[in-house]
Nucleic acid binder design. Structure first.
Length: 569
RNA sequence: CGGGGCGUGGCUCAGUUUGGUAGAGCACCUGCCUUGGGAGCAGGGGGUCGCAGGUUCAAAUCCUGCCGCUCCGACCA
C-alpha cells in the first residue's frame, strides 16, 4: 500500500467530541469517522485491524470445535415475545415495522434467533453438544453512547451459543470457551483478566467477564492480592461480619435535627459509624424497595435486583417514601410492614446490636434497635458493594480495585431460553429434555478500542503486531533524492514479496510530516531510507514501542532481521 | 430520563454580551521554495452561521419551539 493512495485522513488536532484516548487517536489517525451518535464508519486502517481481530477469534473458535454461521440482523418480534423479553428489553432495543406493519427489532443479541434455529433441526442427543457462532453487527440503542467504540450503538460482536444435553456438558462447553477467550485476548497482545460476573438481563447464572485493565474502563473490578480471586464489583460476594455480642437495650427515640447523612447523625450523636445503619430507597416494577446496610457500607444495586427478582431499579422519589410511611434522610426498618413494602436488609446488619437508624420521622433517629426483635425484613441477603480493604471472599486476603474494559463475557444460560421456547431433544431413553445452553460474546470493535487504550503514548497508537493494520512502514526521507527513493521502493517491494505487510510513504512531504503520521498510526516498525544512510550502506529500523533504532547493513539479510524484530513484538 | 456545556467551511475555534454585508489557524487546490520530526512565500476554492418560526429597516447575534452533539448522573450482554 502506498500512503499517497491510502484513505487514511489524519488530523493534527483532536476533534472536540472525543473524550477518551482511543477515540481521539482513531479519529486523528484516520481510522474512524462518525455517522451518528454511537455509529461509526470504519476506514481502511481500522477495518484491517478489525479483520485481524476477527481472524484470531475465528481461528480460536474453530479450534475449540465451534462452527461459524450467520443469522439475520433483523429479527421478528414473535420470538422475543415467546422468550418473554420483548416486553422487558426496553428502550435499548431498536424496534421497526415492515410494510405489513409486522414488528421487528435489530438484533441486540441472538439467543432467541439461535434457539429458534436449533430447536427446528436438533431433535436427538446424538446431535449434541453443538456450538455455533457468528461475527456481525449488533444494535443497542444505548441511552448514552460514549467513548467512541467503547460503547457504541452499533458494534461488531462475535456471539457463540452452545447446546448440551446436561449441565456436565455445559461445564465442558463453558470451559472450552473460557480457554479460547484466554487465547484470543493473549494473542491480541492485551493485558486482561477474567473476572467473576453477574449474568444480568441475559439471564442464567455462572458467568465470567474478560476485562482489559485500563483506567478508562467503565467497569470496576476487585482482585485478591493473595489468591486468584477476581470479580466485577457488582458480583463480588461478601461474608457476614459478626458484631461482638452485646446485651440488647431498650429502643430510644432521639432528636437529630438537620442530620440528613450518616456522617451527620454519627457526629451529632457521637456514635461510631459501624453502629449505624444507612438506607437506600429504590423504585422497581414491584414497587418501593428499602435497602439497609451498615453506615460505612454501600449498597450494590445488582445484588438488590437479584435478591428481589426485578428487572431494574431506580432511585425512589420522595412521594413513594411518604406513601410507605417514611421520609428521606430518616428511613429506618422499624415499623415498616415487610408485607407491604419490600425491605431488604444486608446480612451484616442482622448481626449488629443496638443499632442507630432512622425513625421514619423527620428529625428523629432510633437508638438501640436490634434486628429480629425490632424489625423483620422481607429479604435478608448480601447486598453490600465490596470496598477496598474488605477481605477476599475466598481466602480472606487483601483485595485491590482496578478499572476494566469488558471485551468478552461467557455465560451459562442453562435452560432459560430452551424451556421458554421449547428447544428440546430426546435422550437415549426417549425422554424429552430441554437443551442446556451457554452463550459467549466478544466485543470485536471494543477490543480494538481497548487495544489502543492499553497501547499508546503522546505520539499516538502502538499496535501489537498481531493486530496492527500493517507491520512495516517504509519512509523515503527525501523524495527529491532519486537514489534513496528508488532504494526505498526496492525495499518496499522486497518486504511485500517476503510476505510482510508493508506500506510506503511515497508522498512528497517533508520528513517531519511522515514521521508524525507514522507515530500516530503506530506501525510496529519504521524503515527509513535517506541519502545519508544510503551512503553508509545502512538501513534504519525504528521500533515504535521502544523507540529503539537499529542500523542494518544493506548488503546483509535485512529481511530476516526485520522478521526477527517483528516476531519479538 | 435529570442536570450542565456546545452547534459558525473538512478540523480547532473567534465573532453573539452591545444587531449593521462572515473571520483566523490547520487541512485542500496552483506556483515557487524546502527535504531527518507536523517549514516558508504568493495566489485560490469552499460556509443556507443546526432547523423552523418570530421581533426588526436590518439577525450568526435578540425571543420562542424543535433537532443534534457532548459531559456528569442514572442506566447498561
Amino acid at each position: 500500500m502506498r500512503v499517497s493512495k491510502m484513505f487514511a485522513p489524519t488530523l493534527r488536532e483532536v476533534p472536540a467530541e472525543a473524550e477518551v484516548v482511543s477515540h481521539q487517536l482513531m479519529l486523528r489517525a484516520g481510522f474512524l469517522r462518525k455517522s451518528a451518535g454511537g455509529m461509526y464508519n470504519y476506514l481502511p486502517l481500522a477495518w484491517r485491524v478489525l479483520k485481524k481481530i476477527e481472524n484470531i477469534v475465528r481461528e480460536e473458535m474453530d479450534a475449540s470445535g465451534a462452527q461459524e454461521l450467520l443469522m439475520p440482523i433483523v429479527q421478528p418480534a414473535e420470538i422475543w415475545q415467546e422468550s418473554g423479553r420483548w416486553g422487558v428489553y426496553g428502550e435499548e432495543m431498536f424496534r421497526l415495522k415492515d410494510r405489513h406493519n409486522r414488528e421487528f427489532c435489530l438484533g441486540p443479541t441472538h439467543e432467541e434467533m439461535v434457539t429458534n434455529l436449533i430447536r427446528g433441526d436438533v431433535r436427538s442427543y446424538r446431535q449434541l453438544p453443538l456450538n455455533v457462532y457468528q461475527i456481525q453487527n449488533k444494535f443497542r440503542d444505548e441511552r448514552r453512547p460514549r467513548f467512541g467504540l467503547m460503547r457504541g450503538r452499533e458494534f461488531i460482536m462475535k456471539d457463540a451459543y452452545s447446546f448440551d444435553r446436561d449441565e456436565a456438558g455445559l461445564d465442558v462447553s463453558y470451559k472450552l470457551m473460557y480457554d479460547a477467550y484466554t487465547r484470543i485476548f493473549t494473542r491480541c497482545g492485551l493485558t486482561f483478566r477474567p473476572v467473576e460476573a453477574d449474568s444480568g438481563a441475559i439471564g442464567g447464572s455462572g458467568s465470567h467477564e474478560f476485562m482489559v485493565i485500563a483506567d478508562s474502563g467503565e467497569a470496576e473490578i476487585v482482585y485478591c492480592n493473595e489468591c486468584n480471586y477476581a470479580a466485577n464489583v457488582e458480583k463480588a460476594e461478601l461474608h457476614v461480619i459478626e458484631a461482638p455480642a452485646e446485651e440488647a437495650k431498650a429502643v430510644e427515640e432521639v432528636k437529630t435535627p438537620d442530620c440528613k447523612t450518616i456522617a451527620d447523625v454519627c457526629a451529632y450523636l457521637q456514635l461510631p459509624v459501624d453502629k449505624s445503619v444507612k438506607a437506600v430507597a429504590f423504585n422497581s416494577e414491584k414497587g418501593l424497595i428499602l435497602c439497609f446496610v451498615r453506615g460505612d457500607h454501600e449498597v450494590n444495586e445488582v445484588k438488590v435486583i437479584n435478591t428481589v427478582g426485578v428487572n431494574e431499579v431506580e432511585m425512589a422519589e420522595e412521594s413513594l417514601l411518604t406513601e410507605a410511611g417514611t421520609v428521606g434522610g430518616y428511613m429506618g426498618p422499624v415499623g415498616i410492614d415487610p408485607e407491604k413494602t419490600i425491605v431488604v436488609v444486608d446480612s451484616t446488619v442482622m448481626k449488629m446490636h443496638n443499632i442507630c437508624c432512622g425513625a421514619n420521622k423527620e428529625g428523629y433517629h432510633l437508638l438501640n434497635v436490634n434486628p429480629g426483635r425490632d424489625f423483620t425484613p422481607t429479604y435478608v441477603a448480601d447486598i453490600r458493594l465490596i470496598q477496598e480493604g474488605d477481605p477476599c471472599p475466598h481466602c480472606g486476603g487483601n483485595v485491590s480495585k482496578a478499572r476494566g474494559i469488558e471485551v468478552g463475557q461467557v455465560f451459562k444460560l442453562f435452560t432459560k431460553y430452551s424451556e421458554a421456547m421449547h428447544a428440546t431433544f430426546l435422550d437415549e431413553n426417549g425422554k424429552e429434555k430441554p437443551m442446556v445452553m451457554g452463550c459467549y460474546g466478544v466485543g470485536v470493535s471494543r477490543t480494538m478500542a481497548a487495544a489502543i487504550e492499553q497501547n499508546n503514548d503522546k505520539d499516538g497508537m502502538i499496535w501489537p503486531v498481531a493486530i496492527a493494520p500493517y507491520e512495516v512502514l517504509v519512509v523515503p526521507v527525501n523524495t527529491k533524492d532519486e537514489a534513496s527513493t528508488q532504494k526505498a521502493e526496492a525495499i518496499y517491494e522486497e518486504l511485500k514479496k517476503a510476505g510482510i505487510e508493508t506500506v510506503i510513504d511515497d508522498r512528497n512531504e517533508r520528513p517531519g510530516v511522515k514521521f508524525k503520521d507514522a507515530d500516530l498510526i503506530g506501525y510496529p516498525l519504521r524503515v527509513v531510507v535517506g541519502p545519508k544512510t544510503l551512503a553508509e550502506g545502512k538501513l534504519e529500523v525504528k521500533v515504535r514501542r521502544t523507540g529503539e533504532v537499529q542500523m542494518l547493513p544493506l548488503d546483509g539479510d535485512y529481511i530476516t532481521a526485520i522478521r526477527e524484530l517483528l516476531a519479538k513484538l
